[in-house]
Design a binder for these strands. Sequence first.
DNA 1: GAGTTGATCACT
DNA 2: GTGATCAACTCT
Length: 211
Amino acid sequence: MLPVEIDWSKRFDQEAFSKPTLELAKDLLGAFLVHRSAEGLTAGRIVEVEAYLGPEDKGSHSYGGRITPRNRAMFGPKGHAYIYLIYGMYWCFNVVSGPVGFPQAILVRALDPVAGIDLMHARLGSAHQSRHSLCRGPGKLCKAMNITGELYGEPLWGERLFLVPGSLQPGEQMKTSPRINIDYAGEFASKPWRFYIQGHPAVSGPARLRQ
DNA sequence: GAGTTGATCACT
DNA sequence: GTGATCAACTCT
């Protein structure tokens, strides 16, 4: 059913998160995010991410270099989970990047579900969601994967939450665009720091932002 | 275009 | 400490 096999033995170790953030973001495209929860295992192939580049970036929660209870994970070591609640309802999952004290992160915006699909359906509460819509959008993928604040700061090379390398398949192409929903970020709103697999049915946003 | 609520910030 | 404003979203 899947176009690729996941080699579970080759997960990202902490060293694999050492690249510059924009490079790491491209590495994450095509990789697999896996969560082993008490209810069961869910996993998805990453098809859309956004990079947030630290104190200079007006779109970033670390803008201005302020450390708060919410964003402190961004200032910590690379390869940990930065998870926050948005609009009082939705969790969003990020991979912390950059050295300690350089608060950068990569928001995972969409996955192509590859394991635990029945569990995802159950968590979303509707039997009528198509597979590609289950993890389309940062809030939905956290709900489908049961990623919450409970995993805040979790290292991403452990047993609960981890990443497995994966690359683009023949015929797939990476595209960039401005990031979504950061209109307040001034000149940074137009930086091309969103990366996605062109035309993939699990990518979020309006049609023009998926092609 | 509206809903919905924790986090943040500008004030005491 | 208190109240006002905001928000890296989702569904209609």
